[in-house]
Amino acid sequence: MAKKSWMEKPAELGGGGGRRVVVIGGGVAGSLIAKSLQFNADVTLIDQKEYFDIPWASLRSMVEPSFAERSVINHRDYLTNGRLVVSRAINITNSEVLTAEGRLVAYDYLVIATGHDDPLPKFRNERLAEYQEDNEKIKAARSIVVVGGGPTGVELAAEIAVDFPEKKVTLVHDGPRLLEFIGPKASNKTLDWLKTKNVDVKLQQSIEMDRSSDGSNAYITSSHEKIEADCHFLCTGKPLGSAWLKETILKDSMDNFGRLKVDDNLRIKGHKNIMAIGDITDIKGVKQGYFAQKHALIAAKNIKIMMDGEKETKMAIYKPHSIKVIVSLGRQDAVAQFPFTTLIGLVPGMIKSKDLFVGKTRKKMGLDPHIVHY
């Protein structure tokens, strides 16, 4: 008798008459949709790690490790009525997900929310230890190179410059201006702000990290400029978490950049019961946590409508929003681009920079926004 393939085996997990929802990816979007549906459906969250790390809080956690106590959240804390499978998804069919350990998880509705490929440790205490190590690295250094002038690099350079003004910070970016995803006015204001904090910004230069140091503290840029620094942090873009989908039933549902093509209801084109949310979608516009949360809430609403057998005309439509971006600059200041104006300083800083929306995000996840005891 021929050996059955994994696609023919009965699923190990699931039950619940048409209401089995599987979410792959426990980042900003995936964690919120799992939390939102756990009392309406039989929810299983598949994630490579046991926690949700609020991404826009990570840079503050590097300069202040205790900040991570509130921003690194065990999935179990908010997912009180769902299953958690700590593993990597490696394949999917029209009804099941296969994990790296060989576990099969059956679904009626599937949500892909794998965002960007970021190799984080499996356990929360390991992630907290990483922040502690980064903090010690910053404290021990007299001079630091930050590579990458997107929001991550800019925010990290600003955090270090504000908390450790005695340290020499150099920001190296290969583009013509900082924060290229927003307007030049915001870029210029940010550059001026960094200069006031004595951050040395080098534009249109790169550093080949594998050849950057010969054991000395010298980093050589593409313009053959030598930068003396005790350590560096790499803040360049991470690849999309979609490479694993290239051999699955969704291989024809990706664009040339590896993003999943979705319709107005956030369903993957050609699949009525599979949705994609967050950074992995081909939705035009800035990829931001705020928009990923919007995706999650709209997709959750649409899954409820489908589970209840209501007409598709009732499904919510996701409309890309006008650009509204706030990039924090240390503990008090920020640069903000709104549809009709660009601001920098304390006013936008009051919106984001003090708490970095951590309390607000915890509240959205049904958790105490202020104090956490572990």
Rank of each mutant, 00 (worst) to 15 (best):
S216H: 10
M306N: 10
L343C: 02
L178K: 00
A299Y: 01
A316S: 15
N40R: 13
D210A: 14
I138G: 05
K324E: 13
D264P: 01
K4A: 14
Y107T: 05
L203E: 01
M209H: 02
D255W: 11
D134T: 02
T93A: 10
A296Y: 08
K226I: 15
K195Q: 14
Y131T: 03
I303F: 05
R331Y: 10
G17Q: 14
E208R: 14
D134V: 02
M1G: 15
G17V: 13
K284M: 14
T313M: 10
D230Q: 03
H271K: 11
I207Q: 07
N302A: 07
G237V: 15
G330A: 01
V325W: 04
S353G: 10
Y131I: 06
G215N: 10
V199R: 00
S71A: 14
T248L: 02
P119S: 11
I92W: 04
G359L: 08
N135G: 04
K3Y: 12
D230S: 06
Q48C: 05
E96D: 15
M7H: 12
A113Q: 05
D333V: 10
E155F: 01
R83W: 09
L266Q: 12
Q288Y: 11
F338C: 09
M7D: 09
D47A: 14
K354P: 04
R267Y: 07
N91P: 03
I73W: 04
K49M: 11
V162L: 08
F340G: 12
V358K: 05
D117I: 03
G27A: 09
N256S: 15
D308E: 15
S253V: 07
E310H: 13
K9C: 10
I280T: 04
V169Y: 01
I207D: 01
S353F: 05
G14A: 13
E180F: 11
V327Q: 05
L178R: 02
M306Y: 06
K261H: 00
I344V: 14
T93F: 08
P65K: 01
N302H: 09
V111F: 00
I160F: 01
D210M: 12
V23G: 04
P55E: 06
S222P: 00
D252V: 06
I344A: 03
S66F: 07
S5V: 12
S36P: 02
G148R: 04
P176G: 11
V23W: 06
G270C: 08
V43I: 12
L59W: 10
S222H: 03
E8T: 09
I317A: 08
W193V: 03
R103S: 12
K272S: 14
M254A: 09
Q204V: 02
M254K: 04
E69N: 14
A243L: 13
D42M: 03
E180T: 15
M1C: 12
K284E: 15
R60G: 02
Q337D: 07
S31C: 11
K287A: 12
D118T: 15
D42G: 04
T281N: 10
N40W: 13
H321I: 07
A292W: 07
C235H: 07
H224E: 14
L37D: 11
A29Y: 08
A57I: 04
E228C: 05
S242T: 15
A140I: 03
S66N: 13
A41Q: 09
S322N: 14
Y318M: 11
G17H: 12
P369I: 10
E50T: 10
G30A: 04
K189V: 02
K363C: 04
T99G: 00
S36Q: 14
A316P: 00
A334E: 07
L110R: 00
L250D: 05
G278N: 06
E96A: 15
